[in-house]
Simulated scan of single mutants.
Amino acid sequence: MITINVAMAVVLAVLYSVGFYLLLQRSLMRILIGIVVLGHGANLLLQLAGGPPARAPVLGTADPGTFADPLPQALALTAIVITFALTTYLLALGYRSWVLTGKDEVQDDVEDRRVAARERPEGSLEEDSTGPDDVVDPGSAAASDEPAEPAEPAEAGR
C-alpha cells in the first residue's frame, strides 16, 4: 500500500492556494507568477502520484513488479511544456500592456459593466449608481443602439 507523505500534501495545498490567490490579482506580473506556481504544483502532484522511486521500466533488467510507472513522468513533462508556453505568452502580453499603458494592471471592462447593469432585473436590491460609466462612448456598441440624428440637407443654391 502506498501512502502519501503528509508534508508533501501540505506543500501541494500551499502551492495551489498561493497560485490561485495570485491568479485573482489585477497585476499581470502576479498572474504570471501564479501560473508558474500552479505549474510547479501540478508537476509536484504528478510526481507524488507516481509513487516512490523504482526501477526503470526496461524488460529483462528487473522484476516487473518493481518498475516505475512512466505515465506520471510523461504527464509532468507535458505540464512543464504547457507551463513554459503559457509563461512566455503572458510575458509577451504583460510587456505589450506595459508598452501601451505604462502599467501592468488589468483594466476594467466598461462594456461588460453596462451589459450587466442592463440585464439586472427591475426589482433588484442593488442600487443603480450613476457615474462616469453611464456615459455612452461614441465608439461602443451601445452607441449604435441610439437612433442617428438626420443629417441636414446641403443647400441647393450653391
Rank of each mutant, 00 (worst) to 15 (best):
Q73F: 12
R96P: 05
L100G: 00
E105L: 11
V99L: 11
A85V: 11
A68P: 14
Q107G: 08
D69K: 04
A92K: 12
R120E: 05
D112Y: 03
W98H: 03
A79I: 09
V110N: 10
A76H: 05
G94S: 10
Q73H: 10
F84S: 12
P121W: 03
W98V: 00
S124I: 02
L71Q: 12
G123P: 08
A74E: 12
L77A: 15
A74W: 09
A76E: 11
G94K: 05
T83K: 04
T78A: 15
S124R: 02
Q73A: 14
E105N: 10
A92Q: 10
D108Y: 02
I80Q: 09
D108F: 02
E122K: 11
R96V: 10
F84Q: 06
L93R: 10
L90Q: 03
D69Q: 06
P72A: 11
R113I: 03
W98N: 05
L75H: 05
R113N: 02
R96E: 14
L75S: 09
A116Y: 07
A68H: 13
D104G: 15
Y95P: 01
I80N: 14
T101I: 00
V115Y: 05
D112I: 06
A68N: 13
E126C: 04
A79K: 01
A116M: 07
G102F: 01
A74Y: 09
V110L: 13
R118S: 08
L93A: 04
S97V: 08
I80C: 09
R118V: 06
L93E: 08
E105G: 07
L91S: 04
F84A: 14
P72R: 11
E127H: 05
D109I: 04
T101Q: 03
V115C: 02
Q107W: 04
L91R: 02
T87Q: 03
T88W: 12
